[in-house]
Amino acid sequence: MNVFRLAGDVSHLVAIIILLLKIWRSKSCAGISGKSQVLFALVFTTRYLDLFTVFISVYNTVMKVVFLALSYATVYLIYMRFRNSYNSENDTFRVEFLLVPVIGLSFLENYAFTPLEILWTFSIFLEAVAIMPQLFMITKTGEAESITTHYLFFLGLYRALYIANWVWRYHTESFYDLIAIVSGVVQTIFFCDFFYLYFTRVLRGRGKMTLP
């Protein structure tokens, strides 16, 4: 554990809590892509199956359980409790275009051809692209509420901090995980355009982020 890793995990947690609280307090999930949230729940489910096989640390177990619980709570709020506010007509990204290549890749490129390893690899690849329905939705409607953009900022920050963590671990422990690094860099690149808009529009202005 190093400071980048811890800060990354905290950013990730903050992002998820921001989104959950926003939906809970406003009793609305308008502008939120339910598809992205289902994909994230799928990411956590397939990645954290090792909860049943190995024990790493109390921190590790608690965080995994918390991420799983919060992601399912978010999906529940969007599709059950506040489904009347869900903008399904704008959440039209074709998820199968992500799932099919990601499933294929995880069978081709993995560390071991075992069910748990393939599912872990699938979760890493899927996480890299899971935000695309949300970014697509923002592009389609041309705007996002500021709280939604804060959520995206912390989600992107989490990935950027993980890259710093990998650089640190490479130099201090000679440890590197190529599948995680390549996917993490790809995931972070998706956020670059958003980061630019966030700093130039959301933080300098007020309220919604509107696209040119």
């Binding site: 790493i56 995994k64 560390y111 071991a112 872990w120 963590n165 995980d177």
Partner: peptide
């Protein structure tokens, strides 16, 4: 080892 190492991260 690698497999354990990969999974200590979230």
């Amino acid at each position: 080892d690698r497999v354990m190492g990969g999974k200590d991260e979230l």
